[in-house]
Design a protein around this nucleic acid. Sequence first.
DNA 1: GCATAAAGTGTTTCTGTACCACTAATTTAG
DNA 2: CTAAATTAGTGGTACAGAAACACTTTATGC
Lengths: 252, 252
Amino acid sequence: MAKHNAAPAACEPYPRPLCTVDVIILTLLDATLQVLLVQREDAPGEPFPGRWALPGGIVDTQHDRSLEDCARRKLLDKTGVVAPHLEQIGSWGDAVRDPRGWSTTHVYLALLPAATLHPRRGGNAADLRWFPLEPPAGGPALPPLAFDHARLLGAGLARLRGKAEYTSLPIYLLPQTFTLSELQAVFQVVLGRSLEKKAFRTRILASGLVEELDEMKETSRRPARLYRRKTDEGLHYFPRALESHGGSVGPS
Amino acid sequence: MAKHNAAPAACEPYPRPLCTVDVIILTLLDATLQVLLVQREDAPGEPFPGRWALPGGIVDTQHDRSLEDCARRKLLDKTGVVAPHLEQIGSWGDAVRDPRGWSTTHVYLALLPAATLHPRRGGNAADLRWFPLEPPAGGPALPPLAFDHARLLGAGLARLRGKAEYTSLPIYLLPQTFTLSELQAVFQVVLGRSLEKKAFRTRILASGLVEELDEMKETSRRPARLYRRKTDEGLHYFPRALESHGGSVGPS
DNA sequence: GCATAAAGTGTTTCTGTACCACTAATTTAG
DNA sequence: CTAAATTAGTGGTACAGAAACACTTTATGC
């Protein structure tokens, strides 16, 4: 290990950046999009002590086999589950985002249904909590975040919202079975606007994305048929984006 | 600098990964998509000596202000120009892609018109050359690449092809002015299939993406009107993806 | 029984992609 | 000079899917 640290100094004329992974973990609770944040340790010498941050940390080159494995580890560590959806959002790297010096972070987005969650306060995190996000117009009503995590979270949300216009992405926020109205509602929460019911139902049912179950969900009104995502269906791309009322369509 | 390298050893229990940037530089030459490759130095101790690779290298934490700045530097270094389009494709990081140990690379895609290019063999590269890519069905007819660069190049090409279905992305492979037929041709090369002329023209002209010039281009047949990209137009997203004959639509 | 509200459906309008035939503008060959 | 060939450009139709809205069905509460 000491030998390995000596190698950079031998053939590399400048120090390596710090390498971290940060995970934006989203779920739907109380008809609201929620993000999981950890409170950093309030210790001297720690950057942004006591500040809320996205779960993540330094890549363990001894045990993590890849960046994605690191992300999966952090996710499992904090939520106890494997996310049905995990994707890389992008990487940020510069000399000023971290007071410790030049650093890179590799940001992942995880979407989870709320039902089976039990957030766990692993490692040296002071606290772990779900925070509701505001609809897009109001901006997120969150505590100030450590590092550049507000920006990273913004990028993750923009990805989710952009992709909701032309893919099935928000479906991963739902439990295994759901009604079509619940599916529509999750899209509406993500997009921050209402969708026309008939058009939405036609879109989903025609896509082959879901299969209907023999079960009905007992609601306070008419019972609703339950559906689930077909097991051989990954992320579905629709041939046409939803029409929005102002603003451009697509990922940003 | 010695102090900086001491810091990792003090509070980090494992060594930092090597941090590099690789750039997939594409242009259109002779109606063929071409990728710029560098030949690595044939020196003992160098990983993959003499092997062709994507332009790139280690992040210079003294001079590069960000990952993207590093990518821009590498691009300028090799082509002498600033690309009209540069985007981050993604990051790869693991213990096995580089014989030097745990490493990360941050991959960027640059699209350039061919007209003003003068590839320059900067640094310690043995050679620098444009290689034509085959149409998708035939697979790329390239020399074996160093590291995992074949995989990275594949990801970049998939990005370009995916986005060609629903955005204006291939337009950046063209010079400042172009005919609609040239624009259609570049889309066809990227997508590897022909497009229906009328539908394509309607799509482009209705999008507000291009403006017509008073000039005509003298061809061997009927003169064609010249167009250029509107200056306030970034990447354009079309409301509907092109219809493909088999295979799904969207980025992969 | 009626009002209410959610689940589900029938039908029409609109937008944009594909298709194909045709016209316009040039070059080339007989 | 005329006809053929080829590219640039256009008119018009068919089709797929998103939006809109009215209506029917299924339950609960008064």
